[in-house]
């Protein structure tokens, strides 16, 4: 079976929009991670050391995720300053 190449217009812009979607989701992901310890907190006591490790690990992952996304966004056409979905903002203006 051969795969035919599909035409996909404005690939860069599309990618960039999805990156911005990712950025929008990030704080909710963060909130979720930070609130996970609440589950079952009433019934079980947790060790400070290991709970702390979890929190710091989640925190660090969130930071790394944000940094990578910003980096990718900065390289995409339009940079970090503009949102293609927002009328009136152009790529060259920051």
């Amino acid at each position: 079976m051969t795969r035919r190449p599909t035409t996909f217009l404005a690939r860069d812009t599309y990618r960039r929009r999805r990156l911005i979607d990712g950025l929008r989701v990030l704080p909710f992901l963060g909130a979720l991670l930070f609130l996970v310890p609440l589950l079952g907190a009433e019934t079980t006591g947790r060790a400070t050391a290991y709970a702390g490790m979890y929190l710091f690990a989640a925190w660090f992952l969130l930071i790394v995720g944000a940094a990578l996304m910003i980096r990718a966004l900065a390289r995409a056409p339009g940079g970090v300053g503009a949102d293609p979905l927002e009328p009136g903002s152009r790529g060259d203006e920051v």
Partner: peptide, 24 residues
């Protein structure tokens, strides 16, 4: 350090849900 934490008065994480969420 992990051993010191285990031996300290704060070895257990007394998580108060409402307070935790409110503080954030």
């Amino acid at each position: 350090i992990v051993r010191t934490i285990e031996a300290s008065p704060i070895d257990r994480w007394d998580l108060q849900g409402p307070r935790w969420a409110t503080m954030i």
